[in-house]
Computed example of a mutant assay.
Amino acid sequence: MKKIVCMLALLLTTACASNQKTSTEVPKKTEGFDSVLTGYEYPYPVSYYTFEGQGQKLQMAYMDIKPIGPAKKTIVMLHGKNFSGYYFAPIMKELQALGYRVIVPDQIGFGKSTKPEHFQYSFPLLARFTADLLTQAGVTDFTLVGHSMGGMFATRLALMYPERVQKLILVNAIGLEDYKTLVPYKTFDEQYPAELTTNADKIRNYQKVAYYDGKWKEEYEPMLIPPIGWTKGPDAALIAKTSVMLSDIIYTQPVYYEFKNLKMPTILIMGQRDKTAPGKPFASPENQKKLGDYPKLGRDVVKMIPKGKLIPMAGLGHMPFVEDFSGFMKLLEAEL
């Protein structure tokens, strides 16, 4: 764990230092970031895939890390909802050293990518954008790694493009159950006011409880720089709106019933302490007990997948690559 938090602190603190040097990019009237994190430097150079979508110009930011010499293969990593590509920095560095090309996109609505004011989000649409980005980058086939909500993105992409995804690796993916069968639906208008009140303490406390079993470390702070900066920036309302719209597709567009259709080898790496379940606070006390039972979910879902394999990580939560980086990388490298 010390290895990853030290690397995160180094890589992301460097970003903070860079932000201070380029602070003129951020309006002086705010101490936060705009919607595309202007002034916040990612751990690797950022490229952009520009295209038209729903009648507007969109840009997907992505990092494309190439190894020295011929690449063994290409690894594509898809981020979760509460982060964007930057939090994979230590994994990217390790994979690059092992000879892999690593591509990490920010989905539309996340990170440095466009956040449209009006947009109909869907997993299939975002998967299509990602596939098109990879085609532009000259990537025909790849190993796909998805964490948290990125696991739902990755599953949908693998279902749509089975000929391109050589192997699918899901790291504490959400979507291993159908939330709408256990959680009452909340409209945008019901969720948006609460999302507008998000602040540094709420972000930190949520991750402390949900990800780290109530044990917070200062070394985790660099990962919170972008989301906290957004709450203090000029586009906080747009970020809140985008967050609610993306929460809706988690609820309304399950992948749970289609795990049986995955054709490629699929690995579930799962911290067994995880209890993550979107919308859990809205569920009845009885359903709250059922939601997010990752040990059970892993055992049940892997049976649905024709070429499935479950790798449990005992005593770890939703962020196993943060809590036990060396242990996680050992497992990941073996599967690659």
Results as ranks from 00 to 15, higher is better:
Asn287Tyr: 02
Arg273His: 14
Glu41Trp: 08
Ala210Cys: 09
Met304Trp: 02
Arg299Gln: 15
Lys232Ile: 12
Lys186Ala: 05
Leu125Tyr: 11
Phe328Met: 05
Glu177Cys: 11
Val209Gln: 09
Ser122Gly: 08
Gly292Val: 11
Leu310Lys: 00
Ala236Tyr: 05
Gln107Asp: 10
Asp201His: 03
Arg101Lys: 09
Pro105Ala: 14
Asn19His: 09
Met63Tyr: 05
Gln20Ser: 12
Leu37Lys: 00
Val209Thr: 14
Asp274Tyr: 07
Gly32Phe: 13
Met63Lys: 01
Ser47Phe: 12
Lys29Asn: 07
Asn287Met: 03
Val76Gln: 04
Gln107Lys: 08
His79Met: 12
Trp230Arg: 06
Gln288Ser: 08
Gly229Ala: 12
Pro312Gly: 03
Ala17Trp: 10
Asp235Met: 03
Leu157Ala: 11
Thr22Arg: 01
Ala131Gly: 07
Lys28Ile: 15
Phe129Gln: 10
Val244Leu: 01
Ala97Lys: 11
Ile311Val: 13
Gln96Glu: 09
Lys81Asn: 13
Gly271Ile: 13
Thr140Phe: 02
Pro193Arg: 02
Gln272Val: 14
Ser122Phe: 10
Met329Pro: 06
Val145Asn: 04
Ser113Asp: 10
Val183Cys: 05
Gln166Gly: 08
Ala173Gly: 09
Thr14Asp: 08
Pro295Gln: 02
Gln136Leu: 11
Gly99Lys: 04
Val139Glu: 13
Gly292Asn: 03
Glu333Ile: 14
Gly229Pro: 01
Val26Glu: 02
